[in-house]
Each structure stands twice: as C-alpha cells, then as structure tokens.
C-alpha cells in the first residue's frame, strides 16, 4: 500500500476538518504508519501551528476549537493503537478556576490547547476550594497545576491555593501556572506562582518548559 501524505493530516487539523483528519489518520493506520509518528510529527505540530496563529490574532477561538475537534477525531483513530504501547503524555495537568469564580472560558481553552499539545488534563472545574485542589493533586499526581481567575476579587484565591499546597507539602512537587483577564506576570511572581501566560497557546509553551519538552 502506498504511503499516505501525512501533510494532509497536518492541514486537516489546522483547517479544522474533522472528517478529513479522521480519514487521513485511518488511511495512515491502514498503511502501517507508526501512530506515535503521526501524533508527534503531524498532529501536535498542527495544534502548535493553530496556537501560533491564535497568538498572532490570525485565528480566533472558534477556529481553535474546531481544530481541536479535528485533532480529537484523528486521536480517536490512533488511540487504540497507542494504548498498547504505553505512550506517556507530555505531562499531567490539574486545572481549575479558583474559589469564588464561576468563569470557565479561559480554563476550558487552556485545557483544550494543553490536550492538543499532548498533555493529560484533569479538569477540577470552577469555584474550586483549596481542599479540592489539594485532593486532586494528591490523587492525580500532576507535574503542573494551572489556575484561572477572571475577577480581580477572586485573584487572591490563587495565593490561598498556592499557600495551601505549601502547607500540605505538595508545592515542591508541582509547577503552578496562573492566568485570567486581570492576572499579570507581576501578580504571578508576587503570589509565588512559577509562571503566567496571557493566552491559551502561551500556556502550552509554558507547560512544555515546565516538563522539559521541546516545543
């Protein structure tokens, strides 16, 4: 069987064409292409390309989400093959919107982009208490904790979350990244976070730096 053109997989994801992404992935699997190669050399780079365009204001949230859907469609095809090969995710991220804050747009966007970047996501939800965060960190053993807040009035919860991780002896085990409309790099440093990003694509770059994975 002839080798399928895997560039088509890349472009299908960038274009947000889920049907084409799945079809190319299926053809590649049938032709014996290594699914790990498909994932690391075409699919994740496609989401990286979408993220770069997003950061450059060349694509917007709906296009980003449709590309993520195409990525998922291709993942559905290759996942069964990856399961038997003990392929490790780039890292595990516990993500939450902090206590008192019910906004989830930013959190969900970051989760989508991190997932597209090869990370395993544990989404704890919105209005998450320090207790609930600690429990999630203890249970899921992430390398990264990602915290979101939309309101200036809920930003102090981020510090309470970090302080609680310190109290529980978990702080040294995880990197903490923060984001959200009112959050700044200065604020992140002030509360002792390890990193800050003002957008979802930047969060992927930051997460990769935390786990030592090249972008």
């Amino acid at each position: 069987m002839s080798q399928p053109n895997l560039e088509l997989l890349f472009t299908a994801i960038v274009d947000g064409d889920a049907k084409r992404a799945a079809a190319v992935a299926q053809a590649a699997v049938a032709a014996g292409v290594d699914p790990q190669t498909m994932l690391t050399e075409y699919m994740i780079p496609a989401m990286d390309e979408v993220g770069a365009r997003f950061e450059a204001n060349e694509c917007f949230v709906p296009e980003l989400l449709i590309s993520a859907r195409a990525m998922k469609a291709a993942m559905e095809v290759i996942r069964p093959l990856l399961l038997g090969r003990a392929v490790e995710p780039a890292g595990r991220v516990v993500i939450a919107t902090v206590q008192g804050d019910l906004h989830d747009i930013g959190k969900n966007l970051v989760a989508t982009m991190l997932e597209g970047g090869g990370f395993q996501i544990v989404d704890v939800g919105v209005d998450v208490s320090p207790d609930k965060l600690v429990e999630a960190v203890q249970v899921h053993q992430p390398q990264i904790v990602a915290l979101s807040a939309l309101l200036t009035t809920t930003m102090p919860s981020m510090k309470r979350m970090i302080d609680r991780l310190v109290q529980e002896g978990l702080r040294q085990r995880v990197k903490v990244m923060v984001g959200g409309a009112p959050v700044t790099q200065d604020f992140a440093e002030e509360i002792g976070a390890d990193g800050y990003s003002d957008n979802a694509a930047g969060a992927v770059t930051l997460a990769r730096r935390f786990v030592g994975v090249a972008a």
């Binding site: 949230v61 449709i66 859907r69 989830d104 919105v126």
Partner: peptide
C-alpha cells in the same frame, strides 16, 4: 455574546 465555557464548543461547531 461570548458563550460560556460549556457552550462555546457547541457554538463553534454550529459556526462551522
């Protein structure tokens, strides 16, 4: 308006 985090996926799909 901007849909919330639960609805934005469905909205993006409808858009496409």
């Amino acid at each position: 308006s901007i849909p919330d985090g639960k609805e934005m996926f469905a909205f993006a799909e409808r858009l496409a």
